[in-house]
Amino acid sequence: MRFRVASIALSACLSILLLSQPYTASAQTFVNGGAGKEPATLKAGVNFVWLSENDSQGLMFSNSFSHYLGDRLSLGLNLGLLSAKRYDDSKQIYTIQNTFYMGSLEAAFDVMQGEIVLLRLGAGPSFRHRAEINSDPEGQGTVDGSVTHIKTSDVGLHGFLENDFSILRNGVAGGRISYFHYKDGTPVLSIGMHLGFKF
C-alpha cells in the first residue's frame, strides 16, 4: 500500500514538473520542424556582384523571408536592388551602368543541421526589371549619342548555397553564394553576407 501511494506521488510530481516546462526542446522541434529552429526567418543582406557578359561589378542589397514547411524544407521570397558599373580606362568613362530590381521565389533544403550552424541548397524562379546604359548594346534599347538606354524585364532561374549561424537568442548571420541566369541579358554571380532574426 505504501509503495503504491509513493509511486502515485512520484508520478504526480513528475507530471507537474514536466507540465511546468512551457516550451521544451522536444516541443520546439515538433512544432517548428527540425533542429529546434523557429519556423520563419527575416534577413537583410549585402552582396558583391559580377555580371559576366558586361564584365561589370557592383553591389546588391537584398531582403528575404523564408518559412519552414517541415523538418528541412523551406519556401521563401527574396527581393533585391543591384547596381553595377564598368569603367573604361582608355575612354575615361563608365561604358556600362546596370540597375536591376530583382525578385526570386526560393525552395531550399537543409543539407546540414546543427544547433548553431545550418547549410542549405536552394533554387527557384527569378525575375528582374533592368535599366542599363550600355555602349555596346547589340541592337537593344534607345540610342542616345554614344550610349544606349535599355529598360526591359527578364525571367529566369537561380540557385544558391547558404549558411546560417545562430547568434544571441533569435538572431542569425551567415553567407550566401547565388547564381542568376535569365532568358535575356547578362547572368549575375553574387557573394555576400546577411543578418536577421528568427520568429
Results as ranks from 00 to 15, higher is better:
Ser11Lys: 11
Gly185Gln: 14
Thr142Glu: 14
Val5Trp: 07
Asp55Trp: 00
Pro22Arg: 04
Phe199Met: 03
Ser135Asp: 10
Glu132Leu: 14
Ser153Gly: 11
Lys37Thr: 04
His149Val: 01
Ile16Ala: 09
Glu162Tyr: 00
Asp144Gln: 14
Gly196His: 02
Ser56Asp: 05
Phe165Val: 10
Gly175Asp: 06
Phe180Asn: 12
Arg169Thr: 15
Gln97His: 06
Thr99Leu: 12
Ser104His: 05
Phe48Val: 05
Met193Val: 03
Tyr23Ile: 05
Leu157Phe: 11
Met112Gln: 10
Gly80Met: 05
Leu119Ile: 08
Gly174Leu: 04
Gly76Gln: 06
Phe165Glu: 06
Gln140Arg: 15
Arg4Phe: 07
Asn163Pro: 00
Gln140Thr: 06
Asp88Glu: 12
Gln28Asn: 10
Leu42Cys: 03
Thr152Asn: 14
Ala173Gln: 02
Tyr23Arg: 04
Arg128Tyr: 13
Arg120Lys: 11
Tyr68Arg: 13
Thr142His: 11
Leu69Thr: 15
Asp164Lys: 10
Lys183Trp: 10
Ile116Met: 01
Tyr182Asp: 11
Ile96Glu: 13
Leu42Met: 07
Glu38Thr: 03
Gly141Met: 10
Asp144Arg: 12
Ser90Gln: 15
Pro125Cys: 03
Tyr87Glu: 09
Leu69Lys: 10
Arg128Lys: 15
Phe127Leu: 14
His149Cys: 02
Gly80Ala: 08
Leu17Trp: 11
Glu53Phe: 10
Lys85Gln: 14
Phe160Tyr: 09
Gly34Tyr: 01
Glu138Thr: 09
Asp55Pro: 00
Leu73Asn: 06
Asp154Lys: 01
Glu132Pro: 07
Gln28Ile: 12
Ala9Ser: 09
Ser104Gln: 13
Leu42Tyr: 08
Met60Gln: 14
Arg4Pro: 00
Gly58Val: 07
Gly174Val: 04
Ser135Lys: 03
Leu73Cys: 04
Pro187Val: 15
Arg130Trp: 12
Leu79Ala: 12
Gly145Leu: 08
Ser20Glu: 09
Phe199Arg: 05
Val49Phe: 05
Gly192Met: 02
Leu75Gly: 13
Leu69Arg: 10
Phe48Arg: 12
Gly103Phe: 01
Ala25Thr: 15
Leu118His: 04
Phe48Met: 08
Ala173Lys: 00
Gly141Tyr: 11
Asn163Trp: 12
Arg4Gly: 02
Trp50Ala: 00
Gly185Pro: 07
Gly70Phe: 03
Gly45Trp: 01
Leu17Pro: 01
Phe197Arg: 02
Ile93Ala: 14
Gly103Ile: 09
Pro125Ala: 01
Ser153Ile: 10
Asn54Ile: 00
Phe109Asn: 05
Ile93Asp: 13
Met102Ile: 12
Tyr179Ser: 04
Arg176Thr: 05
Leu157Gln: 11
Asp144Glu: 12
Ala12Pro: 03
Asn47Val: 05
Ser166Gly: 11
Pro137Phe: 00
Met1Ile: 00
Gly174Gln: 02
Ile150Ser: 06
Ile116Tyr: 01
Pro22Trp: 08
Gly192His: 01
Val5Gly: 09
Ser166Asp: 01
Pro22Cys: 03
His158Ala: 08
Leu121Lys: 04
Asp184Ala: 15
Ala25Tyr: 15
Leu189Trp: 04
His158Tyr: 14
Gly33Thr: 04
Lys43Ala: 07
Asn78Lys: 04
Leu157His: 10
Leu79Glu: 04
Phe160Ser: 05
Arg86Lys: 07
Leu10Tyr: 09
Thr95Ile: 14
Ala131Ser: 15
Ala25Asn: 04
Thr29Ser: 14
Ser15Thr: 15
Gly159Val: 05
Arg72Val: 08
Gly156Phe: 13
Gly114Glu: 02
Val155Trp: 06
